[in-house]
């Protein structure tokens, strides 16, 4: 199949950017979207043009490295699918694809389609963990966890930290990412002691970097792991309680 690509090219963080048009020819429908870009890059190198920089690593939808806007959708047209898992059979011969980087002030552009998502790390550093030193844990089965809690925690923990939620959100909000980690840790019995401190700290760092949630649900729709906005509601509840309790105990 043959496609036309309009790709955002930007030489560096402060450089001006623009769309460039490229043709992708003779693409197999069985190849992946990123393999299509590999081929375009091979051609560009052949012609002496700098290849397009894009983010990727595992290419199986788990590391959360990849991601870009494809025709106005984060990670492209297929739901529950990261960019690297998209296959060309999802597209039609002759399609035009517009590729743009994630845009959010919390995700500054590094080059072309590559952005810096370290704001997510700052959120986790604020409290996205259970404080337990290595070697001090009791036997694992001393802490029974109801299966439904374990399952719910796992649903939340499935987040790959790709940033599609922020990218897709019309407000550039980081709620889905933050709430997923909170829901995982706040659901498990191990996470209870720090529950409210964690919630308050993570939310506040989140708000330094990202926008606010107006419950549009675009994040959930873009999430390659289908993380539910129910977790955002949980976070909101815990945050209010946290504010109340932390005041009392401060």
């Amino acid at each position: 199949m043959n496609l036309t690509l309009r790709v955002w090219r930007q030489a560096g963080p402060d450089a001006p950017g623009r769309f460039e048009t490229y043709e992708a020819t003779d693409i197999s429908p069985d190849s992946s979207f990123l393999e299509m870009l590999d081929l375009v890059n091979e051609d560009l190198i052949g012609q002496g043009e700098e290849p397009i920089e894009f983010m990727h690593d595992c290419r199986e939808g788990i590391c959360g490295t990849c991601g870009m806007m494809i025709n106005g959708r984060a990670h492209g047209p297929q739901s529950m699918t990261a960019t690297c898992q998209l296959h060309m059979r999802t597209f039609q011969d002759g399609d035009e694809l517009v590729l743009e980087p994630w845009r959010a002030s919390g995700f500054p552009i590094v080059k072309d389609l590559v952005v810096d998502r370290s704001a997510f790390d700052r959120i986790i550093e604020a409290g996205g963990y259970i404080s337990i030193d290595t070697g001090s844990a009791p036997d694992a089965n001393l802490i029974p966890v109801a299966k439904q809690d374990a399952d719910l925690a796992m649903d939340a923990a499935a987040c790959i930290g790709c940033g599609a939620c922020v990218a897709a959100c019309p407000n550039g909000a980081g709620q889905l990412f933050t709430s997923a980690k909170l829901a995982q840790l706040n659901t498990l019995p191990q996470g209870q002691p720090e529950r409210y401190e964690r919630t308050e700290a993570m939310v506040e760092v989140m708000e330094e970097h990202f926008g606010s949630c107006t419950n549009m649900g675009e994040c959930e729709a873009a999430c390659p792991k289908g993380i539910s906005i129910d977790f955002i509601a949980m976070m909101n509840r815990d945050y209010r309680k946290a504010k109340f309790r932390n005041r009392r105990s401060a």
Partner: peptide, 16 residues
């Protein structure tokens, strides 16, 4: 033991 204490959501049986 360590990973469970950290909150790694390992699969559970119905008994927890």
């Amino acid at each position: 033991d360590q990973c469970v204490a950290q909150g790694v959501p390992f699969a559970r049986e119905y008994g927890g």
